[in-house]
Nucleic acid binder design. Sequence first.
DNA 1: CTGCTAAATACTTATATAGTTGTTTAGCGC
DNA 2: GCGCTAAACAACTATATAAGTATTTAGCAG
Lengths: 121, 121
Amino acid sequence: MSDNIKNFAGLEKQDVLPAGFLERVAERFKVLGEPARLRLVHCLMEGEKSVGTLVEESGLNQANTSRHLQGLVQAGLLGRRKDGNFVYYRILDPSVFELCDLVCRSLQARHREEAGVLRPE
Amino acid sequence: MSDNIKNFAGLEKQDVLPAGFLERVAERFKVLGEPARLRLVHCLMEGEKSVGTLVEESGLNQANTSRHLQGLVQAGLLGRRKDGNFVYYRILDPSVFELCDLVCRSLQARHREEAGVLRPE
DNA sequence: CTGCTAAATACTTATATAGTTGTTTAGCGC
DNA sequence: GCGCTAAACAACTATATAAGTATTTAGCAG
């Protein structure tokens, strides 16, 4: 509720954005802007899981699963743990929960507005 | 802090996600996952502005500005108002503020972790 | 009507990336 | 060593989209 919420975390309006700043923020959004990766994140909300498990639950094939998981790790959202023949992934950055939650609520609100007062479809 | 924050806004873990649900969430993230659009959003955090003003302030050319603004409108994030020869855009969905704020804080936290205690690069 | 300006659109090129398939690497048991 | 499995990687295709340029549309003033 402070007024810096109207800007980018703590930066005043008149501040020039640091070089590459928007690019890094965009990178975060971008990695979540893909249904496949979002699906993996959703699966991992139940806790740490192996790649094989994620393949089963997500419906993605093995190669896609692996690559998307890497993207999420690179973005700092997931953590990776190797145990013998298996590799386990988990959500590292708790902001993921809040980000998804925020978007969902916003979409629900918009949906309600569009539908007037009531109407599931 | 409720436990549905660990999922997608109000959905229980065992719930099957509605068809197209992840796609719509991803769409939201995707539209913010572009530095140019993020820059426009940042400009608009000061308030409603015309396309021309946004062209000046963002450094994007006129065509790109116009097209990116359209994407943001379609996603429901911006509102559009036409007045005579000018078109004014404004932020419609307040969740944008919180989303950007969240990502920024998360990036800052990560940056601090990576740097140990101190070290700009 | 003729200019003039603001914004949107059309068209092109270039790039990025998701998906598929097949192969390779790494770790286990024997 | 061999066989088996899990995960990562490579190579390719297809698609999406950002950027640039040029054009068109819309509204104003005269």
